[in-house]
Nucleic acid binder design. Structure first.
Length: 555
RNA sequence: AGGGGCAUCGCCAAGCGGUAAGGUAACGGACUCUGACUCCGUCAUUCGUAGGUUCGAAUCCUACUGCCCCCGCCA
């Protein structure tokens, strides 16, 4: 038995330690999205970390919607978020809502007041800001800070009863107005909001702030490790303060651990930016294949396994970093390699007439669906006198080491014959519109022909039977940030989508929406789910195949 | 009157006082009915910098430097 060295990370090290020392005996995590947008690949990392951590220790993970701000959240997203998590292949233990705990949260606030640890403040928002001080100067106490417990209790109850207007007063924790950590300068615990909540309706007019609600949600659910991103490091102090001061959680409480969120090259995940792209019609919705949203990636043909593998590969650490897009692409290809059927399609067609092939004759040639996995079977592909090849597979003036077609050169057609190029036909403008070749019957695929070799092998489709299709070629939605500080909207790539009219082999008439194919020698392409493939066959390029072939640089 | 974090190969990232894993990228080469895949090889005498402790330091100490986060009644 080979000892596989389990690569760890700082979070699992901490857990190993706590488990070893008996600080706790089990692991429970949670993924707590705010239902205010669609999930993207950055969320996928958080989802992975939470679920993978629980899995590693035989624990469980809750899905909890952090819906404590009715002015920002929407029911619409609750369903899509669940769908996307399922799509990634994860199953949560309990489905929870922060709003389920509004009652308990309220009672815990009362407990803090009773302990003299919270007070109702009537300072205005501006005044609170003023009193808070700055990064380098201490704050000062609110004049309302030392009200009696009874008065605080009464006022807080009246807040809940709707006796006051929004912004008239808030409940604040009484901690330390001089703390070097600004989060601890009497943070607001509850604010008044006359907004209808998607689950609790108008039952409440006061809503807890994240800093108060989150530790309670975790603790109530029995979460042991509250894994979140780096920007919450300062908030850990209030997270601990809340739980330390409540009797119910005096003994054991969850531990918050922060990790660096994902940054991907040429990708922006901010909701504001994504929404901007959609609102301005730059893309056609949350599931546009150019977006890093999970629904966008899905429509592009990216598999959930590729995303999970990617999350695993990038690791977990506290260092702010940006991952190259190439790593993501590698994971996509790697997962599709053995899963996708390999077929032939021509994206930028050039007509080829095989002059010595009988007119009208059609033969069906067997082609393997995936030569790395013969269990995927084969199909019969029609071949005849007129075919299309990729325009870039012919050159009038071939550069050095060009193995494809040019006058006098011979190549192999995948699954068919060798053909030799004899002449080309141009239109008035001098553009090559057709080439004429001859084939050698002896070289038929599977015949074992070995008399001579050919350096190039190209793909093709039989012209009369080929299916017309639209092929969407995608480039990054953002241009490189030359220099820096450029606004995202100024970096939008005007050529992020190129629509091609191509041809694919007729076997693709059976293709189903969402299905992903390898177009041999080109890349992976997914049947677009917004169009009925029977009526408007459209492919979205998932990712290019790698290629070591480079046309010599000119100039 | 500031506090909290982070710095290891182009990009991620292990490493936890015993002499720099792995992935990706790149570059060679083999193979090939995909210039793909696969396979083989190359790729940090060095861990932000400068000192110190030690037989021995990426790991410990000190001082610098750089970057990120925090002054919402957002999360």
């Amino acid at each position: 038995m080979t000892e596989e060295k389990k690569v760890s990370n700082f979070i699992w090290d901490i857990i190993d330690e706590e488990l070893a020392e008996g600080v706790r005996s089990s692991v429970y995590t949670r993924f707590p999205p705010e239902p205010n947008g669609y999930l993207h690949i950055g969320h996928a990392k958080a989802i992975y970390i939470n679920f993978a951590t629980a899995e590693r220790y035989g624990g469980k993970t809750n899905l909890r919607f952090d819906d404590t701000n009715p002015t920002k959240e929407d029911e619409e997203y609750v369903d899509s978020i669940q769908q996307d998590i399922h799509w990634l292949g994860y199953e949560w233990d309990k489905l929870c809502f922060g709003s389920d705990y509004f009652g308990q949260t309220y009672r815990y606030a009362v407990e803090l007041i009773q302990k003299g640890l919270a007070y109702v403040d009537e300072l205005s928002a501006e005044e609170i800001k003023e009193y808070r001080g700055t990064l380098t100067t201490p704050g000062k106490p609110s004049p309302y800070r030392n009200r009696s417990i009874e008065e605080n209790l009464r006022l807080f109850r009246e807040m809940k009863e709707g006796r006051y207007q929004e912004e008239e007063m808030v409940l604040r924790a009484k901690i330390d107005m001089e703390s070097p950590n600004i989060v601890l300068r009497d943070p607001v615990l509850y604010r008044i909001l006359y907004a209808s909540h998607h689950r609790t309706g108008d039952e409440w007019c006061i809503y807890p702030m994240y800093d108060f609600a989150h530790p309670l949600q975790d603790a109530i659910e029995g979460v042991t490790f509250s894994l979140c991103s780096l920007e919450f490091e300062n908030n850990r102090a209030i997270y601990d303060w809340v739980l330390d001061n409540l009797d119910d959680f005096a003994v054991t409480r969850p531990r918050q651990i922060e990790f660096a969120r994902l940054n991907l090259e040429n990708t922006v995940m901010s909701k504001r930016f994504l929404k901007n792209l959609i609102d301005n019609g730059v893309v056609d919705g949350w599931d546009d294949p150019r977006l890093p949203t999970l629904c966008g990636l899905r429509r592009r043909g990216v598999t959930p396994q590729a995303i999970v593998n990617f999350c695993e590969a990038i690791g977990i650490s506290k260092a702010n970093s940006e991952v190259e897009y190439a790593l993501f692409e590698h994971m996509v290809r790697d997962d599709l390699k053995m899963k996708a059927k390999r077929v032939m399609a021509v994206i930028d067609p050039l007509k080829v007439v095989i002059t010595n092939y009988p007119e009208g004759k059609v033969e069906y040639l067997p082609v393997s669906n995936n030569q790395d996995d013969e269990t995927m079977g084969s199909r019969q592909v029609p071949f005849g006198r007129e075919i299309y090849i990729e325009r870039e597979d012919f050159m009038e003036v071939p550069p050095p080491k060009y193995h494809r077609l040019y006058l006098g050169n011979e190549v192999r057609l995948i699954g068919a014959y060798f053909i030799r190029c004899n002449e080309m036909v141009k239109d008035e403008s001098g553009r090559v519109i057709e080439i004429r070749c001859t084939y050698d019957e002896k070289t038929k695929a599977g015949s074992g022909f070995k008399e001579r070799k050919v350096k190039g092998t190209i793909h093709w489709v039989h012209a009369p039977s080929a299916l017309s299709c639209k092929i969407n070629l995608y480039e990054p939605i953002l241009l490189d940030d030359e220099g820096d500080g450029k606004d995202y909207m100024d970096r939008i790539n005007p050529d992020s989508l190129k629509i091609m009219d191509g041809f694919c082999e007729e076997s693709l008439k059976e293709a189903e929406a969402g299905e992903v194919f390898q177009f041999m020698r080109n890349g992976y392409f997914a049947v677009d789910s917004h169009n009925d493939p029977k009526e408007n066959l459209t492919f979205n390029r998932t990712v290019l195949l790698k290629s070591s072939f480079k046309l010599p640089q000119k100039g």
